[in-house]
Structures are given as structure tokens and as C-alpha cells.
Nucleic acid binder design. Structure first.
Lengths: 329, 329
DNA sequence: CTGAAAGCGCTTACAG
DNA sequence: CTGAAAGCGCTTACAG
């Protein structure tokens, strides 16, 4: 392995100079263009790679961003990991380290992994588990603002409101909510119903589904049965698996989508354009959560004493072919 | 931050002793149970986390496994990342560092990222880009054995053979292959056709789709049109998006699945059980590629001079409801 | 701009 | 078992 020392020798320049150039501190020290060129050329020739563990040890800056979240087999969450991975590429020199807990691994162990690697900041869906006086910059995404850390909200409220408004604008009255994993959706939905003058249909939960589970999915198709002699004409689906189930059950019941039953999904899925009919969806964050999170975190890293930020992303409706005007009676 | 020194002071034990215990080398040095207890208790109390950058610098072992592959938006590949992430948890102390290239990031930059972090080993889909005399342990997954590194094969040949055998056993003659991204599938399929005595139907490619692309998908639905006055009765689909497209097009053409058209997918997708009908699939690796890769890599890391390993995973057919006996004429 | 030196937190012989 | 020491590759003042 080539080291700074090797380059220093080869160029007969001092270690400090070489370090400054290769560490990106050449400007600050007013090092001549010629010297810079020389160092860079030599580094290239000797195929030099800085040893980041040494750099980290000395400067206590690792250029690692930690991701702390459960390993959930649901598209929305998995995309969070994949998209953050992709997005971090925009921040020169930084990498993402995912610490994901599941049935085998505890959140504590994940936290430890990140700490041992000396991450510069943390993105997490579970800021609640962090101590109030945590010493690292944190960007959290949650349903409610963190008491302490910057937060990008992914709450369902706005999405539900917009979806309901859309359904109502199409003339629907009897509207169902399907696929509520966390249980807060149903509650919110029932609260919102009077405001929108609709008849809400929900599926009570029989048992709590653990969030971290291989077989994490819901079968909320009972919603489609007749209830008080009527069926919902519009279903809002909270995840992609539920959407598929609803579609399947509708076919079994000979309900045509969208003529007999409209379906609107909250959050998009890559499969929606490919289904028949293509499923319309409401995206909770048009700009994308990963981008906003990273941006927030890096701002915080720059200005530790910045005021706490709470961000409410702007959502967006994507109309495809799964919703139509209410057309019965 | 608590350091070894702090613990050494607090326990009035020597630095070496503390380091040995916390570094897991207590047994080797015959340190007494009592001393071990003492150190562990103190570390716990002072909330000690080893600084892995220091450890790495000194021992030149980072306990990081690098993943080097393109960032492709196809379920099979994305699962590779997610599953490896999960699987690495079984190797105490090790973490996975994903270096994924896309349109913005070059493979060279990704390689550099891994080298700078001093990874202990690399898993890659593109071993071809590694120098022959690469100094790190490598486990590659590829269609063909690497000339130098251990390889887990994910070639289509076995999958295609088994799928064809299945189709033929159901009495099908006119069989199509859909969704061939890399172009080698069609070729293989045509070669295999005579052996199985079938009439192959393929879709010629009009243009090459770049492997790394946001809109990476195929529309091979032309396959379903009549050709020489007949349609294929069985389609083998090479990816999940293609499967959805075939299903969609079949509905448009009023072809019932599986009565008029059987569909078998190569590689499973989490959506298949939820479609109507539920789609049967052939899984290329029953045990799972990620597990085999990690296992191979760690073996190699232990025994650098082990003979090169080429692994051909055992596949498995999952029957659901999208295939049936040929029943025409 | 340069050179010599200290030190980040750890592991690793080595002598006792 | 312990203690003292060296050193991994880097950055960071500091004196010139």
C-alpha cells in the first residue's frame, strides 16, 4: 500500500505538503499550482488510496452516515434504504452504513455498530430510542416531530385528507381504508370522515402484526363485503400488498375496477403502472424522503446550533386508471 | 469517549490486559475469569465502545465486507443488496458496505471507496473488472465462472432447462421466452429448443437497454400475438415486470390464464402469490445466493490458498396457479 | 511553503 | 498474567 510517506519521498516534498494537497487543504495553505500537480500526478502513478481509518482516527471524522431502522419487507421502507444508498452518492466522499434490526438483531446492537464506526451523523425512523442529549447530528423521519431532533414527517394525515378530497370530488360517499399496519390510520380516518361527509368503512384489526416480520402483509379484503346492504365504491389502500389483495378480491367478487370500485393507493409502487388497470396513487413526498433527510442532516452537521427543523413534505397525486366518478343509482 | 486507557486506569489493570479481554484475546493469554469479569463490568459501566478505525489502522482488518455491483432497479438485484445486508448480521462484528454504481457514479469510484475503507473482502457481480492478481478475497456471482475468483453461478441455463422440462411435461409445444434483458437468454433458449422438441417463440431486441437505468423494464408482449396462425400456450418470463406485462396483455387479448396461456416466471417475486392467478415460478437458488456468497467469501478469507470454488446452486420449482396442462384441439 | 514532532486509540511482540 | 514501548497512516499546530 502506498502511503503519504512514499509520495513524500518520491516527490521530495514534505509530508505536510503532500498531506495538505491530498487532504484537500492545498488552497488554505497557499500551495503552488505546480506543487499540487506534482503531488497529484505522483499519487496517481503510485495508485495511492488514503487510509480512511487513519484519517478517521486522527480527525475523528469518518465521513460515514449511519442509517438506523428496522429491516421491514415493505416496499416503502425498502426503498428508503435503496434510495438513501443512491442519494448519498451526491455527497462527495460520504458513504452510508445501514444498521437494520430484525428478529435476530437488536436496535442496541445496531446503535453500537454505528458508534464503533464513528459515524458523523444518523438517519433514523426511531429517534425515540436515542437519548435526549445524543451527541451526534440526527435526522429522523417519523409520524410526529421528535422532541429534540430534526424531523421529516411522513404522517398519513395529509395523504389521507388529499385522498379523501379526491374521492369526494369524484362523488364517492362510501369510502374504505385498507391495509392499516400501524393502527393509527383507521383512527385518523374515522376522525376525518365527518369533515368530508363520508361513510367510512374500516377493517378492525384482529391481532397486532409485528413490524419486523418476514410475512409482513395484510389481507383487508373483508372490507369489500356488503355491509348494511352496500359496498364501498372507493378504497384507499395503504400499501402495495394490500392493493394487490384488493384487486384480487374485487375480481373474485366480479367487481370491475374502476367502474364498480375505485382504488387509490397511498405511496406509489413500481408495479402500479403495470397492473390492469394501472393504479392511481398519492405520493407522500414528491421530492423524496431520502433527499430531504440527507439535506437536513448535512445542514445540521454544518451548523450544530441551528434551530430544530420540522419538515412537512409536499405530496402529489398520480392519476392512472383505477379511479372514476361515482356512477351508481 | 471512553478508551482502553480509561478502563485500564479504572480497573488498575494494564493496558495489555484490558485490550486482550475487550479484543477477545483473553483465552489465548490465559487471563483469569475474575480479571475478565472485572474488565467487562467496567467497560459496561463506562459505556465503552471500541474505536474500530483505530483497530483497523493497527491490525489492518476492518471487518467490513464490500459489495460491488450496479444499482439496478430490478427486484432480483435489489433483493441481493437487501438480503446480503440482512445475512451479514450472522457474522458477528462484520458489516456490509455497498458500493453501487449508476449513471452518476463509476465503478472505479466505487472500487476506490471500498479500498479506502480497507474492506476485508469483496462480493461482486463484475469480477471481470478486478485485476487478475487482486490482493483481496473475492466472491463473485456471475453467469460464467470467473477466471480467478470463487464464483456462485446464477446462469439461466439450468433454470431454462427445468422450466422447459416442466412445460413439456404439461404437454406444451409452442413455448415463448419473455423479458430477456441481457440477450443471452434468447440464444440459450433457441439452442435448447430442439432437445425438448418444442417450437420456440422469442422477441428480438430492437435496441439494447442499458443495464443501469431508472426505467429498466421490458415490454415483450408482442410474443403473445399470433404467429403462423398460432399463439404460444406457455410463456417463461425472466423478470417480474415482464410477468406483469404478459398478464396485462393476456387480459387485453381475452386469453385466460392458465387455461389459454400458462405463465412460469424465473425467479420468484414477492408479488406473485398476490396476483390472480398466483404465478408459479422457478427459483434459481433454493438456498439463496446471498447466503452462499457470504459463506464462500468467509471460507476464502480463512484459507487464502484454498482451491478456486465454482458453485452451481440448486434451483426449485414453486407451483402456484398460473400453469396448466395443454388442452387445445 | 517546509520539517520535525505529537498524538488519535488501538494491537502486538517482548521482556519480565 | 503485567508493563513499557513501538507503530499503524494520517492530521494538526508550530516554528522556521
Amino acid at each position: 500500500m502506498t502511503t503519504l510517506k512514499d509520495i513524500s519521498k518520491a516527490t521530495s516534498l514534505s509530508l505536510s505538503t503532500v498531506s495538505a494537497v491530498l487532504g484537500g487543504r492545498a488552497k488554505k495553505l497557499a500551495i503552488s499550482e505546480k506543487t499540487i500537480e506534482k503531488v497529484l500526478a505522483c499519487a496517481e502513478e503510485l495508485n495511492y488510496h488514503p487510509d480512511l481509518s487513519a484519517r478517521t482516527l486522527r480527525s475523528s471524522e469518518s465521513k460515514i452516515i449511519g442509517l438506523l431502522m428496522p429491516n421491514i419487507k415493505v416496499e416503502f421502507w425498502q426503498n428508503m434504504i435503496l434510495d438513501l444508498q443512491k442519494e448519498i452518492g451526491k455527497y462527495e466522499g460520504y458513504i452510508l452504513l445501514s444498521a437494520l434490526w430484525d428478529n435476530r438483531t437488536s436496535i442496541k446492537k445496531c446503535m453500537r455498530d454505528l458508534l464503533c464506526r464513528k459515524v458523523d451523523g444518523i438517519i433514523t425512523s426511531h429517534a425515540v430510542f436515542l437519548p435526549e442529549n445524543f451527541h451526534l447530528p440526527v435526522a429522523s423521519y417519523d409520524k410526529e416531530p421528535s422532541t429534540k431532533f430534526d424531523t421529516v414527517l411522513y404522517g398519513k394525515k395529509e395523504a389521507l385528507e388529499k385522498s379523501l378530497a379526491y374521492a369526494v370530488s369524484l362523488g364517492h360517499k362510501r369510502i374504505a381504508l385498507a391495509g392499516d399496519a400501524e393502527g393509527d390510520g383507521n383512527k385518523l380516518f374515522l376522525e376525518l370522515a365527518p369533515e368530508f361527509g363520508i361513510t367510512p368503512v374500516i377493517q378492525e384489526k384482529e391481532k397486532i402484526t409485528p413490524l419486523v416480520d418476514e410475512s409482513f402483509y395484510y389481507r383487508n379484503t373483508l372490507l369489500l363485503e356488503e355491509h348494511d346492504g352496500a359496498r364501498p365504491s372507493f378504497v384507499i389502500s395503504l400499501n402495495n400488498l394490500t392493493t394487490l389483495n384488493i384487486l384480487k378480491r374485487a375480481a373474485e367478487l366480479s367487481l370491475k375496477v374502476p367502474d364498480d370500485l375505485s382504488i387509490l393507493a397511498i405511496d406509489d409502487s413500481y408495479i402500479y403502472p403495470f397492473l390492469s388497470p394501472a393504479v392511481s396513487s398519492f405520493i407522500r413526498s414528491e421530492e423524496g424522503f431520502p433527499r430531504m433527510l440527507l439535506q437536513t442532516l448535512f445542514e445540521r452537521m454544518k451548523k450544530k446550533d441551528m434551530e430544530q427543523k420540522i419538515i412537512i413534505p409536499e405530496g402529489k397525486l398520480i392519476e392512472r386508471n383505477s379511479c372514476c366518478k361515482y356512477n351508481k343509482k
